[in-house]
Design a protein around this nucleic acid. Structure first.
Lengths: 164, 164
DNA sequence: GGAAAATAGTTGAAGCCTAAACTATCCCGG
DNA sequence: CCGGGATAGTTTAGGCTTCAACTATTTTCC
């Protein structure tokens, strides 16, 4: 496991536009947190972030979601969800049910075991994040939340334009 | 290509600590940008983000870097760099040279072709980022840069504690 | 000098991910 | 009713990524 945050690719190669510096810092920051979360999911629950994310989606939609719904919500490809769902089903955490009205579609939902497992994982996950970001004051967190909202708006606006 | 940013996993599942909301927004924001950059690298240069990152490392160190250096700087595993370097070498963008003083080590550097290619990619990349984040004012960018620095400090402090 | 520990890199198994091609089904208009 | 287009999922090929086991070499230190 490398993970030497100090010498990371990411921070401040000089002589570039400050948008680039901002992007690299954003990336470092996210990667740092994400790597730690992945590490702990593996170490404490022997699972992965994509599995966790899929379970989170199902938890928020107890009525079930189709594979296509999940693919859209997780912003990943269709084929990706096929494999992920297969593994989770094999582990007994989710179950499939073919739609009564559309024989192409099938909806996924958590099994009782899946709900139990996810509850444990989710509680721990929330704690980890609170711990990692706990060094920020409430004011800082709010300001960051707002600014990231602005950044997201900038990006989506730019994508709209390009795609229009 | 799914990529429906509006219905993303990420934003604001209610009833959670605000650290979690902040983390999810950070993640969405980063993923949105990163996905677009990957898409354009593929579309315009038929390459990938990891390849680009590796070339960027070499560009910043014209004297060459060992595979281990690269692995540490990119914060990825050793084995990962082995494969990446093999593909880039095969494409003629980098060249290996066994160390004169340590027969285990080999250093990588850009070939002339690699330098040329990276220059093109890098210029485009910088433009994309400026475009995507161009909706933010200078003040917003500076504030975000500072707050992300604080966030990174919070995370690394938390990791230090845990590992101490 | 030589054994033991550390370091550089490779390999293999497994999971994640995408794009593109494919199958099966549904829906719409004539 | 039926042909064509859209939609739901699967499959395949290939790249990325990790971890763990491995080889080769160097360093440490007795």
């Amino acid at each position: 496991m490398p993970l030497d945050a100090e010498t990371a690719l990411a921070d401040a190669p000089p002589g570039h536009k400050d948008e680039l510096r901002l992007w690299l810092r954003l990336l470092t920051c996210t990667n740092l947190i994400e790597a730690e979360i992945r590490r702990r999911l593996r170490a404490e629950f022997d699972t992965t972030l994509p599995r966790f994310d899929l379970l989170a989606q199902l938890e928020r939609h107890p009525g079930g979601l189709t594979l296509g719904d999940i693919s859209r919500r997780m912003m990943v490809s269709n084929g990706n969800v096929t494999g992920l769902a297969a593994r989770l089903e094999e582990e007994g955490l989710v179950e499939r049910r073919v739609s009564a009205t559309d024989r192409r579609a099938q909806s996924l939902r958590l099994t009782a075991k899946g709900r139990r497992e996810f509850a444990r994982q989710s509680a721990a996950h929330e704690g980890w994040v609170a711990e990692l970001l706990g060094g920020l004051s409430i004011a800082e967190r709010e300001a960051l939340q707002t600014l990231l909202g602005r950044a997201k708006a900038s990006v989506t606006a730019s994508l709209q334009e390009g795609g229009a």
